[in-house]
Amino acid sequence: MVSAESRAMLAKSAETAAAKAGRTLRLSETKPGDHGVIVEVRAGSHSGGHGVAVDELQRRLLEFGFVEGAQIEVLHEGAIWRDPIAVRLDDMRIGLRRRDAEGVWIRLDAK
């Protein structure tokens, strides 16, 4: 059952990969395998409920290297609610929660 399900998911991601190229989306909505360039890091574009102010979250993201122009690739995701995610950001690896990644917009590359 699991393998059938994962096969279906693989097929789906393969068919959308080509269609997705050039699309801009939030880092929080990406899947492992997606890769592209960060086009914008916004403050205050997330759903709220953080322990820190929105511009503080933005500054932390920037400090970790989530800046416009950085190359990013989604590597892994957690088992529960596919969260958190692990990304390769330029030459570093960083783990973060999807909710904290909402302000990061990326433009996907072609496969």
Binding site: G49, H50, G51, V52, L57, R60, L61, F64, P84, A86, M92, R93, I94, G95, L96, R97, R99, D100
Partner: peptide, 15 residues
């Protein structure tokens, strides 16, 4: 006590 306030989780995964 601290309704909803969750600290961001951002962590380097070192080599």
């Amino acid at each position: 006590l601290w309704r909803g306030a969750v600290e961001p989780f951002l962590m380097e995964l070192p080599a």
